[in-house]
Nucleic acid binder design. Structure first.
Length: 511
RNA sequence: AGCGGCGUAGCUCAGUUGGUUAGAGCACACGGCUCAUAAUCGUGUUGUCGCGGGUUCGAAUCCCGCCGCCGCUACCA
């Protein structure tokens, strides 16, 4: 049994879930769904990060305890993912007991191994922020947030000896050239490591909203330091070594480029220090950008200024376009690993051309002709059809692309098959022919639709299931196993084909 | 400043180790078809491949310089 463990970052609860979060989560979801479809034993983890001074302050502003506050804000994320049909197997919250247990065990191990030392942290401290700044952060020596003076402060902190891992990290990078992808991001992290590593302060005494340090109850861990460990919390580190051994270290962390350092430098070093293998793979995606000159009315905020990506909620888009359309666009429009442009215009264009004109229309026209020429009953496909090779090619290309974390390529390959089916219908014009003479071509077109339903299942689960039912099939595409289920066969023959409403009604393009 | 990346058709981008007339999708134009969501199929137009030099029989692809944009250079969710 092949196992596949994929994670998103755990999102900081002070943010409202926005399109950037959704981009990462939907990509991870689709990849996880693909692996389930090929029969891998799959574990897909997401969650929320709930500690730190900013959360404690926000709770206070709202007049509730941090716990009450994070119950509320964490739920916004789980609700957002439900709304996007995200199939996470687990949802870890850093305020859960199991996380405290794992963090305690993991960090105690690092402490016992001698990589955590007490030292004095000296820095420039803003009392209002309750936070330290480096001289570069300051504006004319003043706090960049409050514009007031900062004071030189000292705090006794525990430090993780990151510097001790420089050579081991470099060695790890060299032995595992594909551990961090894309290569450009790997190089960025590696050059940072080669530039020399300093120890990092990992505890705070100035606040209490955090995981307590097991060997010194005056301290709590710095929020980032407990957050990364969530990936082991879900496996039951400390409680269930067998389960950890089952899933670790063959994990795939999908992360955004803004948190490379924590995942590609700190985290592997922390694992080494705790005597745990570093994660097998970290895949860094880019950002969706909103901007340029092409601002539509719907992308302008109340003040008439351009909307930021972080102001776009997934729900506002799914209400308008539908869940699967948004999922499709997030997966198809931007190659994972590069930045991409997001716009309503681009979304509308892709919706109309790919979803309405190509996929939706293919399903509709085939169903109609099957109704008129075959009495609505699916004929058997033609084993000699030119579409056989096109379908096999699509399955091969899509598999390869999903394997490489390239959803956009997987979907592109699937749409080439849709195009081939539309072209084949034009070649044979079954709507002109007498009933009985068109069984081969219509059976083949239906078989393509069935295979397409399977191939889009990771990206558009609801649409996939709807097509499945329209083909007269019971169960769900998710019960099928690729690649076998995508072989050219006659599982449809004799089933009743349902016409149904347009899957993706065309939308007016923005003027 | 140092290191790294990018600049290819109106738009979004592909272009493997340099090799025949530089590609795809969308948009656009024309033609076909009318089963289908004014969908679909076919054909076609457009590019000094950022600028200037150089190496080569031959460069978008290698080298040098320049212009423009961007990322990283530690405690930033």
């Amino acid at each position: 049994m092949t196992r596949f463990y994929i994670t998103t970052p755990i999102y900081y609860v002070n943010d409202v879930p926005h399109l950037g979060h959704a981009y990462c989560t939907v990509n991870a979801d689709a990849i996880a769904r693909w692996h389930r479809l090929i029969g891998d034993d799959t574990l897909f983890l997401t969650g929320t990060d709930e500690h730190g001074a900013k959360v404690a302050e926000a709770a206070e502003e709202h007049g509730v305890t941090p716990r009450e506050w994070t119950d509320r804000t964490s739920a916004r994320f789980s609700e957002a993912w439900e709304g996007l049909n995200v199939s996470n197997d687990d949802f870890v919250r850093t305020t859960e007991t199991r996380h405290y247990d794992t963090v305690r065990d993991f960090l105690q191990k690092i402490y016992d191994n001698g990589f955590i030392k007490k030292d004095t942290y000296r820095g420039l401290y803003c009392v209002s922020c309750e936070d330290y700044y480096t001289p570069d952060d300051l504006n004319d020596g003043m706090c960049p947030v409050h514009g007031r003076g900062v004071v030189e402060m000292e705090e006794d902190n525990y430090f993780f000896q990151l510097s001790a891992f420089q050579d081991r990290l470099i060695e790890w990078y060299e032995k595992n050239p594909d551990a961090i992808r894309p290569a450009s991001k790997r190089n960025e992290a590696l050059s940072f490591i080669k530039g020399g590593l300093k120890d990092v302060s990992i505890t705070r005494t100035s606040l209490s909203w955090g995981v307590p340090v097991p060997w010194d109850d005056a301290h709590v861990f710095y929020v980032w330091y407990d957050a990364l460990i969530n990936y082991l919390t879900a496996l039951g580190y400390g409680e269930d070594p067998e389960n950890v051994a089952t899933w670790w270290p063959h994990v795939h962390h999908l992360i955004g480029k803004e948190i490379i350092r924590f995942h590609c430098v700190w985290w592997p070093a922390m694992c080494m220090a705790a005597g745990v293998e570093p994660p097998a793979n970290i895949f860094v995606h880019g950002w969706l950008l909103v901007g340029g000159q092409k601002l539509s009315k719907s992308m302008v905020d109340d003040q008439g200024g351009p909307v930021k990506l972080t102001q776009i909620t997934p729900a506002s888009l799914t209400e308008d376009f539908g869940v699967d359309a948004i999922r499709y666009h997030l997966l198809r429009n931007t190659p994972l690993g590069t930045d991409g442009e997001f716009s309503i215009e681009g979304l509308t264009e892709r919706y109309n051309s790919d979803l309405a004109n190509n996929l939706g229309n293919l399903v509709a026209r085939v169903a109609t002709v099957v109704a008129s020429k075959c009495g609505g009953t699916a004929p058997a496909p033609d084993p000699q059809s030119p579409l056989v090779a096109a379908a096999a090619q699509a399955v091969t290309s899509a598999s390869d692309a999903w394997q490489r974390f390239a959803p956009h390529e997987a979907l592109e390959a699937t749409w080439r098959l849709i195009g081939a089916a539309n072209a084949e219908l034009e070649n044979t014009e079954p709507w002109k022919a007498e009933p009985g003479t068109v069984d081969d071509v219509l059976g083949s077109a239906l078989e393509v639709v069935r295979i397409v339903a399977l191939l889009i299942a990771p990206a558009m689960p609801a649409t996939s299931l709807e097509i499945w039912h329209r083909l007269g099939l019971s169960g769900s595409p998710e019960d099928e196993r690729l690649p076998g289920a995508a072989d050219w066969g006659n599982s449809l023959a004799g089933h009743d084909v349902i016409k149904g409403d347009p899957l993706f009604p065309r939308r007016k393009t923005t003027p």
